[in-house]
Every structure is written in C-alpha cells, then in structure tokens.
C-alpha cells in the first residue's frame, strides 16, 4: 500500500486560487483550519463548525463545499477557490461589485461564503430565477440583511455579466 496517502505531516498539495500550495498538516485537520492557519487565508470564516451556516464555503474542483467539513487529506490534488481569489481592490469581481453597490454585505462575516456560493450558482446557472437564487444561497445564513439585498446583488451580477458578454469585454476572476 505504498500508494496510500497517509495521514499526517507528509505534505498535502493542492491549488489554491491558482497557486500550488503544499502544507504539512494532519490529514484530519479541517480544510478551513488549513486555509486560515497554515495559509493565512482568513477570508474564509467559521460560523458553526457543522456545515450549517456556510460561512466557510469555498469552491473545490468546481463545486461548493463547506470547508469545515472537509478533512484536508481529501483536498489532495484539488483546485480550491476562496474569496481571496475572487477579485482585487483595484479590480473587484462583478459579484463583489454588485454586493457592494446593492447592500448585499452588512456585517460582512457571512459575505465571503455568500460570494463563493454566488460564484458557484452563476457558474452552473448563469440566469437563475429568484427561486434558484434562493435555493443556491440557502446554505449560507445571513443574520443581517434578511437576504433581499443579497438576491438583488445576484440579479445585478447577472445583468452586469450579460452586458459584459455582449460588449465582448472581460472581467477579472
């Protein structure tokens, strides 16, 4: 069983926001903790530790996951996207721009997860109905907004992305 990916500190490698990273972490360490503690990517938040609030949502191999429920060993070889990879201060991602303009972020603690869930939703379904937006974000709890302006933000991204597609422009991320 020399092929076994063992446990602990052997070194687990994956791609985070386009960059290959290798960490010497225990296999049962949560991906959330590896991102925050080993890679200092503290944009991903912990709200509940039981996959209920979605604050730790990241994309892994093109799917949305709660990083608090992923033992890092299972991320070996994966491609991971976190909020830090979405946009930059001088070039916000259209999703970030929409949330800023539409009031989709208040206290901001659910925001990184909400942005990643939105990115996932729109990657799979570029023109979601309001029902699909609600379902796509139902695993991300926001206690501040009552969600309405988050839905508005997602709708605004769709409009913006369509406009960009029409004019043939490109955007970051």
């Amino acid at each position: 069983m020399s092929e076994h990916l063992a446990n602990s500190s052997a070194g687990i490698s994956f791609i985070v926001n386009g960059e290959k990273r290798t960490v010497a972490a225990h296999g049962m360490k949560r991906l959330l903790d590896v991102l925050r503690e080993d890679l200092h990517l503290t944009g991903t938040k912990e709200g509940c530790g039981e996959g209920e609030c979605g604050s730790c949502s990241v994309r892994m191999n093109g799917e949305l996951v709660n990083s608090c429920l992923v033992p890092v060993l299972q991320a070996e070889g994966a491609t991971i996207e976190t909020v830090e990879g979405l946009g930059r201060a001088e070039a916000l991602h259209p999703i970030q721009k929409a949330f800023l303009e539409c009031g989709g972020a208040q206290c901001g603690i659910c925001t990184p997860g909400m942005l990643m869930a939105t990115a996932q939703l729109l990657a799979v379904n570029p023109h979601p109905t309001i029902g699909e937006i609600r379902e796509g974000l139902a695993g991300n709890l926001c206690r501040c907004t009552g969600f309405k302006r988050i839905f508005d933000s997602v709708a605004a991204v769709v409009v913006e992305m369509d406009a960009t597609a029409k004019t043939g422009g490109a955007h970051a991320g």
Partner: peptide, 8 residues
C-alpha cells in the same frame, strides 16, 4: 465594504 468583500 471593500475590505469585507475582499475577505481582508
């Protein structure tokens, strides 16, 4: 807002 949206 920008700090919150960038996760920083």
């Amino acid at each position: 807002g920008v700090d919150k949206l960038l996760g920083r």
